[in-house]
């Protein structure tokens, strides 16, 4: 019954099969399945408390699943931590972006994995030129050009900061990007910029899960939409075969 926007022949990069998750007596996810193909954007929609957050946290290794399985590139995986998920190429970009505002783009991209070089042959120092170069190249791939690579990211706009967070993910070869409300805190021109970033990533063959309340954005960028309601899969539609009214009906039920 799964609808797909990509050729059937291709393997899904991510395959979530009948996953369940309980918190005490609360069943946050019941038997939810979804799949994601390379170069595909899947929007995850649903009301507050529908289970969107729980689902992405289960995929990204924050929570372990209580039932079902998650397959990544054809293999069953169990992520004990977000680091384990990241090591497989699953990056999550949270709403607050998790950037250190006082550091440069390069320093943010490499935060926790900074490249080092040696001066005078024995003193290890941060390789800032390498970080700046990688920052410049990575941001260029997102069609985002900065002059001052040493400026702290706190001085950039919301959309630019979003690009930095995405840049960090793609620099580390993320194959699956999970984006939590990437447009929520932005003005309209910035929202458009983020939508075009996502299209850019899609063109690079990366798979994207995109959580949003904004149906306009969803219809602008997603290939497919998965709707959750009270922890269950309420429905799944190709964007080309549905309309906002239908999605709202799926979200609220009835």
């Amino acid at each position: 019954m799964s609808v797909q926007s990509q050729p059937q022949s291709q393997e899904p990069i991510l395959d979530v099969r009948s996953v369940s998750k309980r918190f005490g007596g609360v069943e946050a996810l019941k038997d939810v399945s979804m799949s994601l193909y390379p170069g595909e954007v899947v929007a995850l929609a649903g009301d507050n408390g529908a289970g969107k957050s729980t689902l992405i946290k289960t995929i990204s290794g924050v929570h372990g699943a209580d039932g079902g399985e998650i397959r990544f590139a054809g293999e069953a995986v169990h992520f004990a931590s977000p680091e384990a998920a990241r090591a497989h190429g699953i990056e999550t970009i949270y709403q607050d972006l998790a950037l250190a505002d006082n550091l440069s783009i390069g320093a943010n991209i490499f935060l926790g994995r900074e490249p080092m070089k040696r001066v005078l042959g024995f003193i290890p120092v941060l390789d800032r030129p390498a970080m700046a170069k990688a920052a410049k190249e990575t941001m260029a791939r997102l069609d985002f050009h900065v002059n001052r690579l040493d400026a702290p990211v706190g001085r950039f706009s919301g959309g630019q900061r979003q690009a930095v967070a995405i840049g960090r993910a793609i620099y580390w070869n993320a194959r699956v990007l999970i984006m939590d409300e990437p447009t929520a805190a932005l003005g309209v021109p910035e929202q458009r910029k983020v939508v075009s970033l996502i299209q850019n990533l899609k063109a690079q063959g990366r798979a994207i899960i995109f959580i949003s309340h904004n149906l306009q954005d969803i219809f602008a960028v997603a290939d497919r939409i998965v709707v959750l309601r009270r922890g269950t899969l309420a429905g799944e539609r190709k964007i080309s075969e549905t309309n906002p009214d239908e999605i709202v009906k799926l979200m609220v039920g009835g």
Binding site: P82, E83, R86, Y94, D96, L97, A98, L99, A100, D101, N102, L103, A107, L111, G112, R113, E114, M116, I123, P124, V125, L126, G154
Partner: peptide, 27 residues
């Protein structure tokens, strides 16, 4: 040197700016 040229120093700045970011970066 430690503050300006090492990972230790870099992570100190990151923790001060955004501890969550530092945690999510695997520090």
């Amino acid at each position: 040197y430690v503050l300006s040229q090492t990972r230790f120093g870099q992570h100190t700045y990151a923790i001060g700016a955004n501890e969550q970011a530092a945690i999510r970066s695997g520090i």
